[in-house]
């Protein structure tokens, strides 16, 4: 398999963290909620509070992989006029704010990227300093065009695997991914859950066995203890809805940012203690 670029910002970051004995905390927020400027503030707040990799969501009218919290934020962002190109503004801000130490991945459903132009999007994302893209409704089988563009611009291609994925599909997806493979902890959509099931750990093991070098776990992680549990066996812990929820409150904006920072800090602490205490707080 020929690749024009073999380095991955995200993989490099995960490897550095692994060298210090811990998983990465990957934090998701949508661009444009409540508006573009404040979404930049929220993302940088999250970075300052200990997120290692950021995931910036492109709001979309039909987010079939998202639960009510992220749906509500996306709907509000669109109503406030968020555009696809605004994601590049946030990516640039993350690169600048972190001095390039925090990789910024875009999470987008496929149609907004298709409409922007897949090659143009890859070019502009790379130029903005972005690390790559997570594609919740694009499987490697349909990703010929995105894969070529990502390769040409040295971007990560983060595909998902699920507890229902067959060994054959795990192999296909592991092979097609760059950066890491996103393991959905459970069958379902984004949102907080009581517990992250045993299936997540089994899925990470199966995905590694299928050839994936790095596997991060998302869906349902909302507490420091859950982050600690997942951080014990995964290369990264992906958190979204619980962070977005802090921004959906009626509190003044500064108070919402404050809560976002605190929640992020608890999750970061969970990830940090995962492998030293076996996840027990």
């Amino acid at each position: 398999m020929s690749r024009t670029v073999t380095t991955s910002q995200t993989a490099a970051r995960l490897d550095v963290l692994a060298g210090t004995g811990r998983a990465a905390l990957v934090g998701y927020l949508p661009v444009g909620f409540p508006d573009v400027a404040r979404s930049v503030e929220a993302v940088t707040t999250m970075v300052d509070a200990g997120v290692d990799v950021v995931e910036i969501g492109v709001p979309y009218t039909d987010p079939v992989m998202d639960g009510p919290v992220i749906q509500r934020a996306a709907e509000a962002a669109l109503a406030a006029g968020a555009r696809v190109r605004d994601v590049l503004t946030v990516v640039e801000a993350v690169a600048e704010h972190s001095g390039g130490t925090v990789p910024a991945l875009v999470m987008s459903y496929y149609n907004p990227v298709l409409r922007y132009g897949v090659e143009s999007f890859a070019r502009d994302l790379a130029a903005a300093g972005g690390a790559g893209m997570i594609t919740p409704d694009l499987i490697p089988d349909e990703a010929v065009e995105w894969s070529a563009a990502a390769d040409a611009h040295g971007l990560d291609k983060v595909y998902l695997v699920a507890p229902s994925s067959t060994p054959e599909r795990l192999r296909l997806t592991a092979q097609a991914s760059r950066g890491f493979v996103y393991a959905a902890s459970t069958m379902g959509v984004t949102g907080a859950r009581q517990a992250v099931g045993r299936r997540a750990e089994e899925l990470v093991a199966a995905t590694r066995a299928a050839g994936a070098a790095r596997v991060c776990v998302g869906l349902g992680v909302s507490t420091g203890d859950q982050a600690a549990e997942v951080g014990r066996y995964a290369d990264g812990v992906i958190v979204g809805s619980v962070l977005v929820r802090t921004l959906l409150s009626e509190e003044p904006w500064a108070a919402r940012l404050d809560t976002l920072g605190k929640v992020t800090g608890e999750l970061a602490a969970g990830v940090a203690r995962a492998r030293t205490t076996g996840g027990v707080s």
Partner: peptide, 10 residues
């Protein structure tokens, strides 16, 4: 095509 989450492919 099949532009859906991987979870549905099986």
């Amino acid at each position: 095509g099949r532009y859906v989450p991987e979870a549905l492919i099986a």
